[in-house]
Design a protein around this nucleic acid. Structure first.
Lengths: 203, 203
DNA sequence: GTCTATATTGTGATAGAC
DNA sequence: GTCTATCACAATATAGAC
């Protein structure tokens, strides 16, 4: 494949990402993507055939980024504290690089829940490994007895929610000063892991 | 106003809610709302003039339900434990009555963040009252020293996130068995308040 | 108030020149 | 590979009969 061909394709993907992230599938317009990419609508179809195919490329890539790399972190031999600190810090850092992803993914998944079944198979994220990892830590007396599924959801919720609800929380707590909210999100790396550790540590 | 007029209006609102909740503003079609309501498109415009106006009616109502009634609960003289238990139980119960609301509100707010400023004024939810309430509990030594804003977000995140991410979590943890997930959400009333209390209690 | 018919504009997609 | 022109259909909104 020539360099030029790959180039155009990447420009389209970048533009499409921009528009789909902001407007969602239904709100996005091929015309707007073309404008954003500085080219013609027809060219989008030449490279991706349809709006659907173009969207799918964006969605699959974003979904990969959204799914936390939990297995490596949580299934190690480190102490639970270390595992939590490392996971939370890493996950929030990753999301902050493309903070629109959580809202985009959750919106699109709710719009079309059937999509999940097929996606999950491709990814193979195996939550059972994390669940049983937590179970093991409980049995070894490292943390108090909790329902692992609830704990897992709690961890993810604490990391992700501030990004999904950003416009609301930003206005509610900081009068829309985006710099403040950014600082707030950085603080959360420590706050969240501390919050979790406190709630499950053995006294 | 005659009974018949109010009747039709209510039927439209009910149908619109159904469709807007599922598809969002951009995905919703006036035709589908009309079908759902068992009447003609023209009638929707007769009662609400435009898709925008109809949407606004739905959105404002849903937003009211989404904003937790925190002030009453959190500003009382009860112990912090009691306040948390009461708030979490109540909020999750309210959301479970119309579980599509969190995703609907967060999607639409991200799609059009400008909307918030104006809405927030109307509501007057005064988060400062809750923040300073938490501050007071800290000063009185009822709970450990934490950043009140982070604690507030944590509480809301733990309650709301499982609804926003339902399709994902349901598939991830329960192989799409919706009965299991419903039970899981009911369990959270206790799990979440316990989780919060553990993390901030003084040893 | 409620319906049918229609105006009008928007939007994904393709044909065909260069 | 990239562009212009255009098709075909979808969607909001209105006109006007009943």
């Amino acid at each position: 494949m020539s360099l030029k061909e790959t180039d155009t394709e990447q420009i389209i993907l970048l533009a499409a990402k921009e528009v789909f992230f902001k407007k969602g599938y239904d709100g996005a317009r091929m015309q707007e993507i073309a404008d954003e990419a500085g080219m013609n609508k027809a060219l989008l179809h030449y490279y991706f055939r349809s709006k659907d195919k173009l969207f799918e490329a964006i969605f699959n890539d974003a979904f990969q980024k959204f799914i936390p790399r939990m297995v490596e972190k949580m299934a190690s031999d480190a102490s639970f504290e270390e595992k939590i600190i490392s996971f939370v810090d890493n996950y929030i850092t990753v999301i902050m690089e493309v903070p629109q992803i959580p809202n985009f993914i959750l919106t699109e998944i709710n719009r079309n829940p059937e999509r999940i079944v097929e996606i999950m198979k491709k990814i193979g994220m195996q939550p059972e490994i994390i669940i049983s990892g937590i179970q093991k830590d409980i049995e070894e007396g490292k943390i108090i007895a909790v329902n692992p599924k609830h704990l897992l959801i709690n961890i993810i919720a604490l990391c992700v929610f501030p990004f999904v609800a950003k416009p609301l929380l930003q206005n509610m707590l900081f009068d829309n000063n985006s710099g403040d909210y950014h600082t707030f999100l950085l603080e959360r790396k420590k706050e969240v892991s501390q919050f979790i550790i406190n709630s499950i540590k053995i006294n």
